[in-house]
Amino acid sequence: MIAVALTIPDVVVYVVAALMIVVGALGVISFRNPVHCALSLIMTLFGVAIAFIEQEAQFLAAVEIIVYAGAIVILFLFVIMFLGVDRRDEVRVDPLVGQRAFAGVGVVITIAGIIFLMARSHWITGVPHVATGVATKGNNSNVQELGRAVFTTYLFAFEATAALLVIAVVGAVVLARRERASTLESSDA
């Protein structure tokens, strides 16, 4: 790998983003109160957004904030408050592995392994790819390229998300709707 001259602002931005991400993520898994977890999650999301901007993906940074912070975490908060789970007993499930330590060791080994493998292959082995033929250009807005890719190379995936959203909406409605009596019971006023 070529030695890269790092500029101080870049490093500062990176460090800030990384701190936000890591601290936020740690917050998510260490706070007891789900609302605090959600707040930590937002911090992570902002960190990721900053990292996106640093990597010339401004559009995604905005979408990240709009979709994740603006919709997803709000939904979380809404449900937390709606159910009042922060003050009462939680909705719990058995974790996959009972032992905390076991899970910890397992995850650490896995992640260390992944990092090791990535480092061994010098982080990247692919080549600028010919299939899409669309490359990001300079520091211009990449929204156009993004849009073009969505409607060419990723057209099918894009259309498939329509099915995904339809099923999600129907599913949410089915799940959230209150039980109603059907015709038989409705005669029993």
């Binding site: 493998l117 480092a119 061994r120 292959s121 990247i124 082995t125 080549v127």
Partner: peptide, 15 residues
Amino acid sequence: FLGKNELLRPGLLIA
């Protein structure tokens, strides 16, 4: 890609 190139360091791919 994998047919054309022999990955000398396939760590990333393995992961």
